[in-house]
Amino acid sequence: MPALAQGLEGEDLANLEKGLQAALGKGFKDLTPSDAVKLTMPAIAESGANVPAEVEVALPQGQVKAIHLFADKNPTPHLVAVQLMGGLPYYASRVRLAETTAVRAVVETADGKLLLASASTRVTVGGCG
């Protein structure tokens, strides 16, 4: 098991596997953790309904076919698929996270590899002032 995938808060590999199979027809074992993929998530969400997510890929433009985001604990783990035809390897958005979860950026390269970066975001029901 890749070191990057262990000990993350909110990890749920079984649920993630379902999402990976549905979206890519591949499983967690087919992913290669890569430092070229940088996934920026807040360590703690201000609001689970609105969590900024950003993916930057340090690879030449033509080598990145698509960027995917997954959240282990979401009922539908696949958050988005972004096909890049003319853009730089970058994607940012705001996503809903159901609870504290591991988040994955999966990058499809032109040569058919699936690169992985993981992060974890804590979502709480909160306290009061």
């Binding site: 201000e46 609001s47 609105n50 900024p52 909160g126 306290g127 002032g129």
Partner: peptide, 15 residues
Amino acid sequence: YVKVSHPEEFSEGLS
């Protein structure tokens, strides 16, 4: 953490 501590609709559209 305004949005965690209180119902979110109070600060809708802000982060």
